[in-house]
Each structure stands twice: as C-alpha cells, then as structure tokens.
Simulated scan of single mutants.
Amino acid sequence: MSFRIDPRLALTGETRRIAGEEIEKIAAHLNTARDNPDKALHKARKRIKALRALLHLVWPGDEAFCRTENDRYRAISVSIAAPRQATALIETIDRLAEDFAENAADADLAGIRTMLVRHRALAGHGDTGLSAVLDTAIAECQAGFAALQTLALPDLPENAADVLADGALATLRRARKALQQSRERGEADDFHDLRKAVKRHAAHLSLLRKLWPSPVKPRRERAEALGESLGELHDVFVMRQLIEAGEAPFDGPEPKHLVRLLKRSEKALRKLCLADAAELFEDKPRRTARRLAKKARSDLGENMAETEVD
C-alpha cells in the first residue's frame, strides 16, 4: 500500500492502515540493525518521523491517543539516536570536503574524517547494549501496533475534512513561528524547530496528495529539499557545539581551520534556508487550511456518495 490517505475510505481505517504499515517497517529496520546498525537505524528514524507526522495530522480527531503514541515513538527515536549522530558528523566532513575542496588539506579534513570513523566505532551501544535497546524498541512497536485498535477518528466527510485541515494548520503555524524565530534570533534550536516543522509538512503533503489543492507535487519537492538543507545546517550546528564544548570526539586541540569552514558553510546554509522557507510559507496558514478543508470536504463527500450508489 502507499503513504497516502485514500479519500474513498474512512479516515479511521486509513490512519490505522498507514500507521500499521509504518510500524511494521520500523520494526523490520530495527531487526536489521542488529547486523547493519548505521543504515538500518537511520531508516528506522526516518519511518518514525513519518509515523509521528501522521499522528500530528490526525491529532485533532483523537488527542489522547495521538499524544500517547507520539510520546512512544519519540522515545524510541531518542533511544537509537547516538549512532546516527556519529554518522552525521562524518557526512558533514564529506560535504565540507566537496564544497571547500581547495581548503581540505589545510583543515586536515581527511584526518578528521578518520578520527570520526574511529569514534563512531567506539561510540555505539556495544553488542549487548544495542541488542537490549533494539529489543525494547521492537517491544514498544508491538505495543503501539496493538494500541492502533483503540484509535477512533471522525469518519463523516465534513468532520474528517476538519480534522485533516486542523492538523495540517497546526504544523503550518509551527513552521511560520519557527521561521520568524530563525530570522529574529537565529539560534540553532530555532532552525531545528523549523526543520522539524518542514519535515512534518512534507510528510503531510504526501499523506494528503489526493486532497491537497493542486499543485501539490512541486510544493512537496520544495519542502523535501528545504528539509535536507535544514538537516545539513543542523549537522553543522552540532559539530560546532561539540567543538566549542570540547566534547568527544573534539576533546583535543581546537581544529581552527575546520571551525572556519563550518562558519562559512553555516552562513551559506542559513541564507538559503531562510529564503526557501519564506517562499514556501508565504501564504497565511489559515488561508491554506481553509482551501484544504474545502477541497477535502468536496472530495470526501463525492467519494462517499459514489460508495452509497454502488
């Protein structure tokens, strides 16, 4: 099946279907992580983000359920985050080596990369520790799958349309607020909040591509590209924070040439992300939500009428 809500079907059933498929994918990636943790844990965290985006979309229809389950999957994501951060540091060095090839030797990017690879090997949970973390995470997925049967959402077209519009609106508002904060304060946490909202919005566009006012595909592509740029900026922030704090693996002499490259990369990414986010969220959230609700009511109503005739 697909990661999209079928307007011909009841919202409760569609949400259960999509969530169930995502939970199965997460559990499968967690199992694979026993032998290949780097890639599998990254894939598991991506699916968790997609699942949590779905929960936020239908949140207005069953707040208690969505809050409990969102907390469950956030905790799972946190429990498997450490190996991914170690890999992200390596990827940041690789991007710097590509973007600033003429400065790679002076900054000893090759040597730093070797150090980071070594750190990643030492920073994992260890065989026993990782196995226990995975066992707990998979058990939580199983519990979450069972809990899906208690989810109850409005299925009448008008009510279902309002749930989806309100859920999408909350994320659009969060994105606009994070964009404003990123412009005014520009702290790492502000851009991180913007990144989370953009990623969630991109997932909502995928879920609602049969219901979102056209053209949805170009908007989704722009949101996904912005999410990637914000992810790169987040990785730069993390590396700079580790260096400034003298935390492992940067607990030796300060790599001054690397810091200069990180600052140059950060400056370019800030400018790019702010410009792209301003363009993506130029429309007022309430206006977008009204258009979504109107189209959703129409499409859901038409499909219900066709079902009754059949």
Rank of each mutant, 00 (worst) to 15 (best):
A160S: 09
L122F: 01
T150Q: 11
A132T: 02
A178Q: 09
D108F: 03
R118S: 11
T114E: 15
L169G: 01
A168S: 15
G129H: 01
A160L: 08
I112Q: 10
N159S: 15
A170S: 14
M115T: 05
A161P: 13
V117R: 13
E184M: 11
A175R: 09
P154G: 06
R118W: 02
L164R: 06
A123P: 00
T171F: 04
H119P: 01
L153G: 09
A168P: 09
A110H: 08
M115H: 07
T171R: 10
A147P: 05
H192A: 15
A123I: 00
L156D: 15
D108E: 11
G129D: 06
H192I: 07
Q149N: 13
E187S: 14
A123T: 04
L122C: 00
A165D: 06
D166H: 05
A188K: 10
N159V: 00
T114I: 01
K177S: 10
A123H: 05
G129E: 03
A178N: 10
D189K: 08
A175Q: 08
L116R: 03
V117K: 12
R120Q: 09
D108K: 12
D155F: 13
L172D: 14
T114F: 02
E140Y: 05
R113M: 05
R113T: 10
L194Q: 05
Q142A: 03
R120V: 01
D135R: 09
L164W: 05
Q142E: 13
G124S: 05
D108I: 01
L153E: 14
G167A: 10
L172A: 11
L148M: 10
G186T: 12
S182K: 07
L156P: 07
A188M: 02
D155P: 14
A168Q: 13
D108M: 04
A161C: 12
L179Y: 10
A132C: 00
H119C: 01
K177L: 13
A139E: 15
F145K: 14
D155A: 09
L172N: 04
A152S: 14
P157E: 12
V163H: 03
V198E: 08
T171L: 05
L164V: 06
T136L: 12
A139I: 02
E184H: 13
E184L: 13
N159R: 14
L151C: 10
I112C: 03
Q180Y: 07
T114G: 01
H119S: 06
R173Q: 15
G124P: 02
E140F: 07
L194K: 08
I112S: 06
D155R: 12
Q181F: 04
A137P: 07
A147I: 02
L151V: 09
A165W: 09
E158K: 14
Q149H: 13
R185H: 15
S182R: 07
A139K: 12
G111I: 01
L116W: 04
A168G: 10
D127M: 00
P154I: 05
L148V: 11
G129Q: 05
A161N: 14
L153T: 11
D162R: 15
M115W: 01
R183V: 15
A137L: 04
K199P: 00
L109Q: 07
F145E: 14
E184P: 02
L151F: 11
L172V: 00
L156A: 15
T150A: 14
D127G: 00
